[in-house]
């Protein structure tokens, strides 16, 4: 390790050997994206219907808010290591922690999306003879879509970060570079891995921010 570790990390990133094969950057990035997508999707299948129900009916809101708050106190590394011991090395253990950590954002996004619709607008829809399902899908959801996408954004940011810790208990993904570098005292490689994860997280965050803007119905600038 000579010179600036940042220059060395750029050299590491520029080395074509790091861009091919099973441990290469493209494959690790895809792994990381795959974990993130899988975690967020499974969590969404569980949390979004519940959130929509809570937002539409107003029932169980206190529980949903408390759950979202309590989840913030949960240490992500604790969950990842706990499941690693309980379930063993493999994809199941990290996936379980991704799902648990993604649920609060998605739940909050879904119920606040539905809840954000003006009560007068919802009543007007009801007075026009819309069924509750139609009110949810044609009035409340389109109006609150940016908030729902915001929930996905929060969940994605959380899971991208946690997916890196998953490499600590034997999964792939970009976190590998950091933990390999830590083990072999290779600081430039750790920096390179960090830059890659940060870039991935920011790209995902900005993409979903854009999606949030685009899904706002014309005439409504809710968020």
């Amino acid at each position: 390790m000579t010179g600036s570790p940042f220059l060395d990390s750029l050299r590491w990133l520029g080395d074509s050997a790091h861009w091919t094969g099973p441990g290469g950057i493209p494959l690790r990035t895809l792994e990381h994206l795959g974990y993130t997508a899988l975690g967020v999707l499974v969590a969404a299948l569980l949390a979004v219907p519940i959130g929509l129900y809570v937002g539409h009916s107003g029932r169980g809101k206190g529980v949903a808010v408390a759950a979202a708050g309590a989840a913030r106190a949960l240490p992500t590394l604790g969950l990842v290591t706990l499941f690693a011991l309980l379930v063993g090395i493999g994809l199941t253990a990290p996936l379980l922690s991704f799902v648990i950590l993604a649920i609060p954002s998605l739940l909050a996004g879904a119920y606040s999306a539905v809840e954000s619709a003006e009560p007068a607008t919802v009543d007007a829809a009801r007075a026009q003879g819309m069924t509750e399902w139609q009110i949810l899908t044609r009035v409340e959801l389109p109006l609150g879509m940016p908030l729902l996408v915001g929930g996905f954004r929060g969940a994605t940011v959380q899971v991208v970060a946690t997916a890196m810790l998953a490499a600590y208990v034997g999964s792939g993904g970009l976190g590998r570079y950091i933990f390999q570098g830590l083990g072999s005292q290779n600081y430039p490689q750790m920096i390179a891995g960090s830059l890659l994860v940060i870039a991935l997280a920011l790209v995902l965050d900005l993409t979903l921010l854009l999606a949030q803007r685009l899904t706002a119905p014309p005439g409504v600038r809710a968020s």
């Binding site: 920096i191 891995g193 960090s194 940060i198 997280a201 995902l204 900005l206």
Partner: peptide
């Protein structure tokens, strides 16, 4: 602020 919050903690600890 929202971009800063999107940066995962471990890479920041490393950088």
């Amino acid at each position: 602020s929202s971009l800063m919050y999107a940066i995962p903690s471990l890479p920041l600890f490393v950088l």
